[in-house]
Design a protein around this nucleic acid. Sequence first.
DNA 1: CTTAGGG
DNA 2: CCCTAAG
Length: 613
Amino acid sequence: MGTVVDTQVDGEKDNEESDFGNIGASNPVVYQLVRVEGDGRLVPATDDEVMEVEHLLDENKSGLASDEATKHFDGCVSNERLPSKNSDFEGLSQSENAEVDSQKLNARLEYIEVMLQKVKQEERLRLSSESLIHSAKCMDVKCQTSDSCNETQACNDKLQPENTSMETAPSSMVLNGSCSALLRSAEACLGPANEVVTSMSSVSECTSSKPDFSILKGEICLDNLSIRELQEAFRATFGRQTSVKDKLWLKRRITMGLTNSCDVPTTSFVIKDNKVVHKEMKEEPSRLQLSQTEAGSMSTDQVTDATINNSQTLPSSPTDRTEDLQVSGKQLRKPFCEYDEKNENLQMEQFAGKRVRKPTRRYIEELSEFETRECTAKLLSSVKNSGHCQSSPKSRIRPVRDIGSQSISFSTRQDSLGGFGIQVPYVSRVRRGRPRKNFATLMNFVDEIGKRDAETINSDEEQDLRLEKFDAAGDNTDNNADTRPPLTGGVRRKHHRAWTLGEVLKLVDGVARYGAGRWSEIRRLAFASYSYRTSVDLKDKWRNLLRASLAQGPTDRGAKNSRKHTSIPIPAAILSRVRELAEMQSQTGIELGPSKITGRGGGIVQEKGSGFL
DNA sequence: CTTAGGG
DNA sequence: CCCTAAG
């Protein structure tokens, strides 16, 4: 049913500028909101409804005229300030006479629509726009005012002078964009306003596209628009699709988007206040509000940066924001501009003021992230203090606080890369390597090194020695390698230790001798000096070698280097050897025998190796 | 612990 | 290189 507001006016007019917050109280006018039931009887309006109506009434001056009332009514309809869903129309009528002639109203509407159509046709673009804008201005005032159109003229006069207001005006037009506007335009609007054009441009800026405008025009008859159309308009306005099917909601959204004001319902106010509220503000505050609303009701992803920032800033931000909004936009009578949920529109509106904006999903995520980070940091620090030292005695961990001088907050630990004490960020690397080397091993290792330094490398075989020398010769890195391990001790292996040519040779040789798969053996014998190579390493390396050899070997053996792959090119000779070995090994079979047979393979290898050497 | 493989 | 599963 239609919601009719019966307003009893004391006869005094509200102050136009009066803030909305004071509804009945401040205003001399006393309203009684009534709903017309189907049977025609009047039912006290709900608080929500009252709020709505009051708002309207407050804003407007109180001129009373039945005709005007009617107009106003129409305007309201278009505005849809009244959320009633079924109503043929929603209207605000001022008069003792609670009853409104629906037919009359409807007729009025139709008339308006017709006029609108006419206008559209005649002045498709410019004229219509002008008139609309013009009318819009008027409308805002009118529609919202309980009294009615008497003000229209005045409003026009008032509005037109204000170019500044123009910017907002267009939007308002859209918003209120109601029958009254149409009427007005039809009746009078055409004449004035070169400025309108200007305003138009500004509008386009805001909305970002002219197409929108056309759509906007359509909006004037919001009621007539189908949901789909509304959605289209929405899309045009916001640049994104919406699945919302609530007409009211859509209209409001669109209006808001166009107006850049959240407070669609109170648009009139805006206009009046335009000086204050809008000119500059439209971008920020309104936008902010809008975004907020979106965040709450729409997809959270769409939230504007402003909103995000606010939300992120502090938990309290919502409140602050609200305050800001109120301050900036007087309209905050209804801080929340919008209805989040399709059905709850009206009531939601009322609560909106009190309601705290629900944190955005993103906000939540951000927050959680932050917290996580903190926790992580704590954990890290704790780890540093507790475990790490144990794992690697030689690594030194410096708590963050100790690093006062360093601007960098993260602690560092001494890493024994390449034997140099390098400070690397401590990244909670809690010993990834196998626990394997215990202290004893380490000691052994050191011993080994010591031997090396002395150049007394007594491997079981002289080959090792030779190979090693080769290593040194071919790759100086080997020397470095020697130095490193000692320091690293437990944490060793850490990061990639390039295989030297010598190592590769040893490996190959070892494989040839002992057979592939006996890595531990190979390691023990052939790699005695390279304690940092584990059997696994050998295995891996061998695998890689094999792969490389297979890949490269067949096609062109001749190629000396396959530089493309790795920094250290492996001589084709070696690769070929590897491949041969591999074949042999595979042929030989997995039996232990082969290992003995290995001697054969080894011999071959050596031959080649010797040749190479 | 040593191997073998996958990542 | 790291990590794991399987002997």
